[in-house]
């Protein structure tokens, strides 16, 4: 099978990142790392869908304010969410001046937007690109599972859709002190025949393995070349499978610091079972924890955004769950 090249970027600088999280997310393992925390995840709106749009708007203005810019300075916004027709992201930018690229790769949306954004600024097509992605527990639950008030026993392998939005501003202009997106790889769609819609981690793990193996094969590197590797939202079970599958292929993740955004977002006491999931998951962790670590602790980091590309309709029609993983390579700027 012919394999596509890895991507390499010379001048895709990360200007600033911003994260806005729901109340439950702030009570997890990453307490205090988020830029803004909602007291009420309905944002004083009458529906959860409107609340999600409001969150996107806050993240949109949040990141530009943090970078001391106006929204007008941004050339293009690349974003997506979990709702049908990606309404939250597109409604949030209506009547604003930046162009908009709406994308959907389920929970891998954030990694996809980072790679697309980095390509656009690296090629000098645009100067400033905003990558934004998020999800809301209550809207995703209604769309993919059951109404909120329905009493159901959650499957022990299920995950909890995170509430929040993360936004990152990329620029073709930067200083040596800025962290950079230095490369990456768009994944291919992989399906190992998992049918259980609750067991997302097991469905997505093979695709994460596939993308990481191809990435290492093409650039000749191994886990020990990175200070840390993060997967998007495989959850506890999925990341266990991910590590075990890699070990059986001869790659030992013990050589680096491996963590899963979904697995680390919530604490065990919060009864999220296998941890967090959703488009917000990797976006939140990237824009809080990972960007912080890049400002001192880590030099080179990999982020593997994982996504399960199913819909409720395909589930009822007896289809298995195809999954995708995009790999983003990040490197820290010169220490200040």
């Amino acid at each position: 099978m012919k394999k596509a090249k890895n991507l390499n970027f010379e001048q895709s600088y990360i200007v600033e990142g911003f994260s806005i999280a729901g109340p439950k997310e702030d009570k997890g393992n990453l307490t205090g790392l988020f830029d803004e925390v909602l007291d009420d995840d309905k944002c004083n709106e009458c529906t959860f869908e409107k609340a999600e749009v409001a969150m996107f708007k806050k993240a949109l203005y949040g990141v530009t304010n943090k970078a001391k810019l106006n929204v007008d300075d941004v050339d293009v916004v690349i974003g997506g969410d979990l709702l049908n027709q990606i309404v939250s992201a597109s409604f949030a930018v209506r009547n604003l001046s930046p162009s908009f690229i709406g994308i959907y790769n389920a929970c891998a949306t954030f990694a996809e937007s980072l790679l697309l954004g980095a390509s656009l600024v690296n090629s000098r097509c645009y100067e400033k690109v905003m990558c934004i992605s998020g999800s809301h527990f209550s809207t995703a639950e209604r769309q993919y599972r059951y109404p909120l008030e329905l009493g159901v026993l959650r499957s022990p392998v299920s995950q909890w859709t995170a509430t929040g939005v993360g936004s990152t501003l990329l620029s073709s202009q930067g200083t040596p002190f800025n962290s950079r997106v230095t490369g990456g790889r768009f994944g291919r769609v992989v399906d190992y025949g998992t049918y259980d819609v609750n067991n997302m981690g097991a469905a997505m793990a093979p695709s994460a393995v596939d993308t990481l193996l191809n990435f290492f094969e093409m650039n000749g590197k191994s886990p020990k070349d990175y200070d840390a590797i993060y997967t998007g939202d495989l959850g506890l079970l999925g990341s266990g499978i991910f590590v075990d599958m890699l070990l059986k292929k001869g790659i030992d993740m013990e050589e680096t610091r491996y963590n899963d955004c979904g697995g680390m977002l919530f604490s065990q006491k919060q009864m999220t079972l296998q941890g967090g999931s959703g488009a917000a998951c990797s976006a939140l962790v990237f824009n809080s924890l990972i960007l912080n670590e890049l400002k001192g602790n880590y030099r080179k980091v990999l982020l593997l955004g994982t996504g399960a590309l199913m819909s409720p309709v395909t589930g009822f029609q007896g289809e298995s769950i195809p999954c995708i993983t995009h790999c983003v390579e990040l490197s820290a700027g010169e220490p200040l």
Partner: peptide, 10 residues
């Protein structure tokens, strides 16, 4: 996190 990885490996 670590425990679950070990349990999967086991």
């Amino acid at each position: 996190m670590k425990e679950r990885e070990d349990s999967v490996k086991e």
